[in-house]
Amino acid sequence: MPGAHRDLTDEELMLAYAGGDPVAFDTLYARHESALLRFVRRVLGSALAAQADEVFQDTWLRIVAARASFRPQGARWRTWAFTIAHNVAMDRLRVSGREVVPDAPDDGSDPLDWLAATLDARHPSSEDEAFWRAAGRQLLDCLDALPAAQRAAFLLHHEDGASVEELARHLGLPFETAKSRLRYALQKLRGCMQGYLVVLERAA
């Protein structure tokens, strides 16, 4: 990354790109490529995994097309971009007939980071790496089993760090609906991960 761009915030980079600076876009892409692709893959789930790259590229095309509409006072760039990715992925799920709206593969990352942080638990020792690999695979399976709307809201909240208020605003949902989706998702994940949670709670 060129030094002049490396120290800019995401919001500054987007404004620079909207103003005609293509290197600013290259910097944004390099900074967020992995996280956005991981998010898209997880929102789509295993059933549509083969379409993840296409949805990922469509997301960036929409980001490019919407560059002039970005306003930093409205949202962090990351939340804005992840919301676009969410919308593209949910559109694809609707077309496939796989989206389920509730009533009120391993990509190299550690899918249990948020879980350990939630429990304030320490990772088991290095001798227990097999435990963490197995728990990571189980968590991905549990995420895949969630209704798409709950899975997407959960990932926006825990991977992007979007608050409930941001979720509601950017997804066009009432606050209580966004809150309920997160609560239901966490309840289901906790139930699905119960065997591993017991071990983590003992290690805390």
Rank of each mutant, 00 (worst) to 15 (best):
A149C: 10
D106T: 14
D26C: 06
D120K: 09
W60L: 02
C142F: 05
W80R: 01
D91V: 15
R71F: 04
E54H: 08
Y196D: 11
R78L: 13
Q57C: 06
D58T: 10
Y196K: 02
D103L: 15
A145N: 02
L197K: 01
L155C: 00
T177C: 09
W132D: 04
G161P: 15
A203W: 12
D113R: 15
A104F: 08
E176M: 11
Y17L: 03
W77E: 04
L44R: 08
Y196E: 00
E176H: 14
A52W: 01
D110C: 14
D141L: 07
V43S: 04
Q57T: 02
R42W: 03
L200E: 00
R31A: 05
K179G: 13
V199P: 07
E201M: 12
P111M: 05
G195H: 12
P147Y: 06
R122P: 09
S46Q: 14
L200C: 03
G19C: 09
T79M: 07
A204E: 03
L146D: 04
G19H: 08
A35D: 13
A35E: 06
V55N: 07
R92M: 01
A130G: 13
D26S: 13
V40A: 10
A18M: 14
T59S: 07
I84S: 05
R76E: 05
H123P: 05
D141Q: 14
D7R: 10
S96R: 09
Y196P: 15
P105A: 04
R38V: 10
H123N: 09
G191A: 12
A153T: 10
H157D: 03
S69G: 10
A47M: 09
Y184A: 08
R71T: 01
E54F: 02
L140C: 04
L48T: 04
L28F: 10
V23W: 12
E176T: 11
A24W: 03
A149T: 12
L155V: 03
L37E: 09
L119T: 04
T118Q: 12
E201Y: 00
R183F: 11
W132R: 01
L28W: 10
D113T: 12
D53K: 09
L173F: 00
F175L: 11
S180N: 10
A68F: 07
M90A: 07
L13S: 01
A49R: 14
G172E: 01
A85I: 11
D120M: 12
A135C: 07
E159D: 08
D141N: 10
R98F: 10
T79G: 13
T9Q: 03
A85T: 13
T27C: 13
E159P: 07
L173D: 06
T177W: 04
V164M: 04
E33D: 15
L119D: 03
R6N: 06
L139W: 05
G191D: 07
E159K: 02
A148V: 06
S126A: 09
T83W: 02
V164Y: 04
D144C: 14
Q73V: 07
H157L: 03
A152H: 01
L61W: 02
D91S: 08
D26G: 11
D21A: 01
H5T: 14
V164G: 00
R151C: 03
V43P: 13
S109L: 12
E99K: 12
D91A: 15
V101L: 08
G97E: 00
F39L: 14
N87G: 13
S34N: 11
A65W: 06
R41E: 11
R94G: 02
S109M: 07
W114K: 15
E201D: 05
L197S: 08
